[in-house]
Design a protein around this nucleic acid. Sequence first.
DNA 1: GACGATTTGGACAAGAGCGTCCAAAAGTCA
DNA 2: TGACTTTTGGACGCTCTTGTCCAAATCGTC
Lengths: 220, 220
Amino acid sequence: MEISHDLVRSPAVQKGNYNKRCAIIAAATAVFVRDGYIGASIDAIAEEASVSRQTIYNQIGDKEKLFAEVVRGITEQGSARMAATLATFPDQPEDIGRELVEFAVRLTRNCLCDDNSRALRKLIENEGSRYPELFETWKDYGPGKNWPAISARFARLARAGDIELDDPDLAARQFMALIGADLPNGPGEIVSDAQLEKAARNGVKTFLRAYGKRESAPAL
Amino acid sequence: MEISHDLVRSPAVQKGNYNKRCAIIAAATAVFVRDGYIGASIDAIAEEASVSRQTIYNQIGDKEKLFAEVVRGITEQGSARMAATLATFPDQPEDIGRELVEFAVRLTRNCLCDDNSRALRKLIENEGSRYPELFETWKDYGPGKNWPAISARFARLARAGDIELDDPDLAARQFMALIGADLPNGPGEIVSDAQLEKAARNGVKTFLRAYGKRESAPAL
DNA sequence: GACGATTTGGACAAGAGCGTCCAAAAGTCA
DNA sequence: TGACTTTTGGACGCTCTTGTCCAAATCGTC
């Protein structure tokens, strides 16, 4: 699982080699996701990063500190991607079907199916109970900020008369569920662009059959 | 996580105390799900089962054998519950909305939200790559047998004129996604009957808005 | 080249877990 | 009661991991 940490910069202290530090964080992310917190060994991370074990202790410190750094990195990156993607929601659509499909493709590709998001979900699910403070950080970014944002977009579409719905929050949850329903969710599965496109089209089609304006039968 | 293993009987050999064996399997299931394969220690399982560590080695054997037994148990039980629930699909509905909601409640309660199913999903997701043969066994029961079964039911409903759909497989996947969209999916969260009922109603409502016959507006 | 900072690899102690062995205790059945 | 089976608890050897320490090697910069 390749994870770029371009956005992960040393927070305050700027000692040592940035590249080494980034390599350590990236390798730690991969190994933590693959083997879990307990199963991940510092030696495996060191080997994955092509770095001596001692360097990890020099640069970051404890295993817990390393894990916290990993979580901080993927949370930040995931949140940034989600915010950027949400900004592309079709506000004043000309062809709502096509534009919703395009948005769904961006959403699944950048925020649901990418390695970073899957890593975050897996860590939250498996180690969230062991490190509740990690869960707290994520709640702010995930369901705390982004879900209301997307439901607000749908509410605006409804006010503009593009769709018909009574509960924007519910519609947002169902939209997410529908565009994810047709995606292969096996472990470590590769999702092709064609599958992504088809899943988005199928999900949006059903979403608009339920919530679209009655007179305009969407031909996708 | 309480998991009853009434269906789990010793396969061939019938030596020793059944109660002890069942207690071991149940405890092992809980600990494996909680801590993962590597994180689960035989000592913790022995303590959870109120049994000496040596007894585990006498009754089952290896840690791997114990894990395989755990997976076999929850897979069997999950499959049995799914089959029993699928048999209650409304074949000739009088009130399709109400009957689909009732079916969705049964499905989520027995096959999606119960401890057994969640344990199975978690183990598959986390250890499936480490033990592919485990994944194989599950594929037969899960997507291999049950998903075609449910889509066949929807196809029959469509032929009878109760709903309008072109792709039964897709409709089945979307039905599952919709009735699960409104469920709290946090780790270890308790789902009340009221939430279950409401989630099912919301999901079926949208499903029928998309696939129901146009003239009969469902009032749920 | 020389100096300081960093990295490296190896060694180390402490602890945890797995699987085995074994003698004593408890349970089971005739 | 007596013979047989099972369970128990403790001890053991083995491996793996964590975190620390340290001297030698490497890198960057002047």
